[in-house]
Design a protein around this nucleic acid. Structure first.
Lengths: 233, 233
DNA sequence: CGGAACATTGACCCATGTCAAGTGTCGTGG
DNA sequence: CCACGACACTTGACATGGGTCAATGTTCCG
């Protein structure tokens, strides 16, 4: 099942309580960390930058991607509100993080996180859980990009966004795409043209409805699921 | 840079020392964990199985893969000696693990690991580091599968194995492929035929030499690197 | 209103998939 | 030691999904 972003700890209820050691919980700390605003197209960090902070998205969307010397681009994830980005143990970022729209993030110093984790095992396990969800999402995307057809990829993608909405208590049949066709294409390993053609094909088949190219209504979720799983026709 | 398997902690020197709390280090524990033997084609675990253990490979190779209902298969990683597999926080495995040849693994109960991590932050950070390397490798593979051509994918793959050899102090210009063309194909998102044709193409270009289909000699690493990075011709 | 950025659509092409023979290579049993 | 079968790999001929290039539409914002 394709997943948009890792959706870590933040989605659990986050009561303001204290851990055994009397320190603040992971959720508390993030919730009170300083905010930073990023404009559309602005980069939060680039590949090769020193990993200074870990961020949690409050609103907006951040596109995580890698580029090849000739400009080919692979989007690794599209991080949405609630998601943590920048986790990892290597001292430099291995990818770029760019806002697709006006975005607010909470910033926590990586060194502070590291210190807390080494002092409080439960805190460290939180990081471990968060990153292991990211890994699962990355592997799911790998399956999609490596094995599925264009139709199947786009169907998987739409369902992933729908599930994401479900988790946030928003409607599951109406999706607002927080990114361009180019971002979707580079996420799914397709060109803009193929993404566009695939949307129209899905529309002609009566599975979706398009509203101004960034609004999508899912008309037949079951059919989309069969498609995504390669069980169509 | 494409990486074969995550290559975690185990590659650091592993002197038998004790951590601050007087408990054994991660490396000590793994090194003394019970061994299990697996025959070629046998599964270590399957998708959906309860995550009971974390394993470290001593010898052999384990192919990690996901399958779709219709049988399409994506190999996520090919774990080699030294690698940890089965890390993650979800209670069930999200993929299958199958030996490609006779393999020895060390087994550590996941519950014990979890307990140790919650008690000793440094121990937890080790897990975090190990899994974050896996994530980086998975994302690198995603770039390869999503953006590179067949030639570029195979070149990246061979170089990944070569670097892997380098880290183990083995020769970097002679590679023994521990898996079939089918495994390679499903790893790179290609068919067996395309993998085979690509090998012969590389051979005709004088970049590699083949010995009985599982031995590969790299004749021009620089050219292979240019190829892998999309900088050829 | 005008222009830039984004999206759609069409025509064509090509890299890779599919299908179908072959050709090793290896292990087993006669 | 050889014959045989199983399996993996290679190679060829052909088909096709998705890429490329180019034109047109649409949306949005100054």
């Amino acid at each position: 099942m394709l997943t948009i972003s890792s959706s870590p700890a933040s989605h659990l209820p986050t009561p303001a309580r204290h851990s055994a050691q009397g320190t603040l919980t992971f959720e508390d700390r993030i919730a009170n960390a300083p905010v930073r605003m990023i404009e559309a197209k602005e980069h939060l960090f680039n590949e090769g930058d020193t990993r200074t902070h870990v961020y949690q998205i409050e609103s907006g969307a951040i596109c995580l991607y890698k580029v090849m010397p000739d400009g080919r681009r692979q989007v690794l994830n599209i991080a949405l509100p609630g998601d943590l980005i920048g986790l990892g143990s290597v001292s430099e970022h291995a990818f770029n993080a760019q806002a697709t729209k006006h975005t607010r993030v909470r910033c926590m110093a990586a060194s502070a996180l590291h210190k807390l984790a080494s002092e409080d095992g439960h805190f460290g396990l939180k990081l471990y859980e968060a990153i292991s969800l990211e890994l699962a999402a990355s592997r799911e995307l790998l399956l999609t990009v490596g094995q599925r057809s264009a139709m199947e990829r786009v169907a998987s993608f739409l369902l992933a966004l729908s599930r994401r909405n479900a988790r946030n208590g928003e409607r599951t049949d109406a999706i607002k795409l927080p990114m361009t066709r180019a971002d979707i294409g580079d996420f799914l390993g397709l060109t803009i043209e193929t993404v566009s053609r695939t949307f129209t094909k899905l529309k002609l088949q009566g599975l979706i409805e398009l509203d101004q190219s960034s609004g999508v209504r899912l008309l037949d979720v079951n059919a989309l699921e069969d498609l995504a799983d390669g069980e169509a026709q």
